[in-house]
Design a protein around this nucleic acid. Structure first.
Length: 445
DNA sequence: TCTGGGGTCCTAGGACCC
DNA sequence: TCTGGGGTCCTAGGACCC
């Protein structure tokens, strides 16, 4: 996702003087506030001011919270069943995740943002890095405020924007923009004074690139804030955290190490799910795995590539410590690179058979395709007996039908109809913005 | 009873070769 | 048969991100 540059010592700039960075090349990080919760709210304005949470697939744990829900102390990632009481007493509104809705809203947000900057990199469903290049004579603060307002007006989604000379600092700035109302949605770090102040107020665990593991280690060495981190020597950081930590260190000093990147096709694609109920027999697991393989194949065709390797894995519920545990996976080299649904299902089922052991309660399975190469004209292989041209045409027809008439209207028999494995989503909202023949206009304000 | 899913990069260690 | 060292490639696992 990210290009690394300036990885050598001579790129290190001195930061001892009070430097005012020019705005010649500033990075921006814009992201949606409480994205999934905000999406649900756009179409149900009656929920303004009401605590909302959105649950992960299978209604497992909390993956998004409105500000009101955060104020109730509902933590991110908390399993839903542990929150039952809190939810009932506080009348928290709960949604199953609706990725069709979020994906479409994301597209609208990104589309609006793209009109404002020469270059952007969509980093995740709810955030994007921006490059402010050639903005020397523009007041970035008011320009940014206008962006934030426009996105909200056009889509109904509130966003925050951080700007700074590096991506890691832009992330820091973004946190301030989100946290404090006085910033009006936009915070800029463009002087050394602001940088120092911001870093002193930033907990080490909140720095982009420093996760739970490293923050624990760092705290042990009395590195508690981002500022403490920058005060250590580069070689100490290198020794403790490797090159990744060193890059973060440089970025926090104001030396960019991470460049904007053009979208690349994925290097691996994974489809996996926990089952709605535990499965003991091969048949329903086969059905699930067929569907996962089909989904991988579809994703491959969408980015016009083939996979050379397919991995299948299955496992029991690791949280059920009183039950016998089993985890296994198998990796297969495909004889010919492919994105053909029928072929990938074949491999996946063969792999599954080789690792499936009867007698366990299976909770989850998945298919991963990797060693992804660009689609290219099909070459005849002496030992390849498959009529690839024919199957390629069939896939094309299938994709087109499913695009016009809805997902899974046409599928392979192995994908089945039982769907014993399918996940729970009992509190799903309608796909407001993408329902067929129901193109929806959003009105806010 | 009930604990997500999909990615990336880096490193250490083993296998193998010369 | 024994010995040493260095390079490369691959893989599994760890760390991080959203």
């Amino acid at each position: 996702m990210i290009n690394f540059v300036n990885d050598n010592d001579n790129q290190l700039k001195s930061n001892t003087s009070t430097k005012v960075w020019g705005s010649s090349s500033m990075f921006g990080l814009i992201d949606c506030n409480n994205f999934y919760a905000s999406c649900e709210r756009v179409f149900k304005p009656s929920l303004n001011g009401v605590p909302i949470v959105v649950l992960s697939n299978n209604d497992g744990c909390v993956i998004a919270r409105s500000n009101e829900a955060k104020a109730l102390g509902i933590p991110m990632g908390e399993p839903a069943f542990k929150l039952k009481e809190l939810i009932e007493t506080n009348k928290v509104v709960v949604f199953s995740s609706n990725y069709t809705l979020y994906g479409d809203m994301s597209y609208r947000v990104m589309n609006t943002i793209s009109k404002f900057v020469p270059d952007m990199e969509v980093y995740s469903i709810d955030e994007a890095f921006l490059l402010f290049d050639g903005f020397e004579n523009i007041d970035l603060k008011s320009y940014g405020e206008n962006m934030v307002k426009t996105v909200h007006r056009n889509t109904g989604i509130p966003v925050s924007l951080g700007m700074a000379p590096t991506r890691t600092l832009a992330k820091v700035a973004n946190k301030f923009a989100k946290k404090h109302k006085k910033y009006n949605g936009v915070c800029i770090i463009d002087t050394d004074e602001k940088r120092e102040k911001a870093l002193k107020l930033t907990d080490i665990g909140d720095v982009w690139g420093i996760g739970r593991r490293y923050s624990k280690t760092l705290r042990y060495y009395s590195v508690n804030t981002a500022w403490d981190f920058t005060q250590r020597t580069k070689s100490w950081i290198r020794h403790t955290m490797g090159v990744v930590g060193e890059r973060t260190w440089l970025e926090l000093q104001g030396t960019p190490c991470l460049e904007m990147e053009t979208p690349k096709s994925k290097k691996s694609i994974c489809t996996s799910r926990s089952f709605g109920e535990k499965l003991t027999e091969l048949a329903p697991v086969s059905e699930a795995v067929s569907n996962f393989a089909a989904s991988c194949a579809e994703k491959l065709r969408k980015q016009h590539s083939y996979a050379c390797v397919l991995t299948v894995f299955i496992h029991t519920n690791p949280f059920a410590t009183n039950q016998p545990q089993y985890y296994n996976q198998t990796l297969m080299q495909l004889s010919v690179p492919t994105n053909d649904t029928t072929e990938l299902i074949n491999y996946a089922l063969r792999g599954l058979k080789s690792i499936f052991v009867k007698g366990y309660l299976y909770k989850k399975a998945g298919v991963i395709v990797s060693e992804i190469v660009p689609e290219r004209p099909l070459q005849g292989d002496l030992f390849d007996l498959r009529d690839r041209e024919k199957f390629s045409k069939i896939m094309c027809v299938m994709d087109n039908l499913n695009a016009s008439y809805g997902k899974q209207k046409v599928k392979i028999a192995a994908q089945g109809f039982d769907r014993k494995w399918k996940l729970k989503n009992e509190m799903l909202s309608p796909c407001y913005s993408t329902k067929l023949g129901d193109a929806m206009e959003i009105n806010v304000e």
